[in-house]
Design a protein around this nucleic acid. Structure first.
Lengths: 166, 166
DNA sequence: CAATTCCCGAGTGGATTAGTCGGGTATAAG
DNA sequence: CTTATACCCGACTAATCCACTCGGGAATTG
C-alpha cells in the first residue's frame, strides 16, 4: 500500500561523492583535477563519477573546465562546503522520515514515530553540516591516506611540478 | 558491548519495526497485542509484520503467545529497549558499505573518508541507542497520535475492556 | 586538425525491499 | 474433542533502486 518511500539516503553514492570532493580539495592547489585522475586514484568508475559531478555542478559546488589541461575545481572555498551539501547534491536529501518531513506518513496524519525520524534527520544533518571539506583535509588520518595515495599515484598535493596552474 | 561498530541501515523496514514496537509498548498494559491489531492500526501488511516479529523474537525483544487471547508482549521493560536494538534486530545485514568493518575500503587500505563514516555511524548509533521505547511513549506528540489512533480503532491503552489480563 | 576533457541521456544486471501465499503448530474456549 | 485463534515458517515475486556501462556530443588547447 504505502511502499513508496525511501531509505535515508546515505549510500555509496554519497560516499563516492564526498571522497571525490576530498580528492579535489586536496589536489586543486596544483590546478584543475581531471575525473580520470580521481577515478584511478579513488578506484571509482569514470562514467559513474561523471554522473556524480553533473549533480555537484548543478548544485554549484564545482566548476568544470573543458579541454586539455582542464578538469574540475571547487566552486567555492573548501571551508564553505559542508559534507551535508555534497550528499544532498547527489542524493536529493538527508532524510530519515518516510513522508519527506510533512506528517502525512499515515493516511494524511503523522505516524506514531514521525517525530523520532524528524529528530534523527536533524541530528544527522547537523552532524554532516558541521564538517566542511576544509575541516576534513586537516584530519591526521585523512592526511596519512592522502600522502600514501599520492606516493602511489605519483601526484603532488603541494604546488609542485606544473600541471598548468592557470 | 561487543567489539565492532555496526553500520546500521535505516530503511522503512526499521521504521515499521519501531512503529510496531511502539504500538506494542503502548497497548501491552491491556494484555498481549495481536499482529492483526497492529497491522490494521499502523497500516502495515500482516505477513510482513510476521517477518519483522520473527526477527524481533530471535533478538529476544518480544515474546509470542499463541492461541486465542494471545499475541505479543515485550520481553523486557520498555525502558530497556533502545531504538537501536530494534533496528539492528530487523536490519541485521550489517555491512552494506564498501569498507566492511575494517578499513579495507580501497585495496586493503582505508579510503580517504573512512574515518568520517566511522564517526557518522557512531553518532547515529549513539543517538538511537540513547532513546528507549519507554522514553518515546512519553513524548507528547506520540501520545497525541496514539490517542487519535485508539479513538479511531476503538482500542484502549489503559486496562480497559477485558482482553484476558493474564 | 586531433587530442583532451567535460557533458548528457538511455540502458542494464544484480541486489534489496516490501509484500504475498500457503502451509503449519500451540493454545484457549466451548 | 473440536474449532477458532493467533503465532510460526519458508518459499516465491513484482517492483524498485543502485552502481555502473555505453555511445555519443561539445568546448578547449596545441
Amino acid at each position: 500500500m504505502e511502499g513508496v518511500r525511501k531509505t535515508m539516503r546515505l549510500t555509496t553514492k554519497g560516499r563516492y561523492a564526498v571522497t571525490a570532493m576530498m580528492d579535489l580539495a586536496i589536489h586543486e592547489v596544483a590546478g584543475p583535477v581531471t575525473l580520470t585522475d580521481i577515478a584511478s586514484s579513488q578506484n571509482i568508475s569514470l562514467s559513474y563519477l561523471e554522473q556524480l559531478f553533473a549533480n555537484l555542478r548543478r548544485a554549484g559546488l564545482v566548476k568544470g573546465m573543458r579541454g586539455p589541461g582542464g578538469g574540475y575545481r571547487l566552486a567555492c572555498p573548501a571551508a564553505d562546503i559542508s559534507i551535508a551539501k555534497i550528499i544532498v547534491a547527489v542524493d536529493d536529501k538527508v532524510d530519515a522520515t518516510r513522508c519527506g518531513g510533512k506528517g502525512d506518513c499515515q493516511d494524511g496524519e503523522p505516524c506514531l514515530t514521525h517525530e523520532l525520524w524528524v529528530d534523527l534527520s536533524r541530528q544527522l544533518y547537523e552532524f554532516l553540516d558541521g564538517i566542511s571539506l576544509g575541516d576534513l583535509t586537516q584530519w591526521p588520518c585523512v592526511q596519512d591516506v592522502a600522502a600514501r595515495q599520492d606516493a602511489r599515484d605519483g601526484r603532488h598535493v603541494a604546488a609542485g611540478r606544473g600541471a598548468n596552474p592557470n
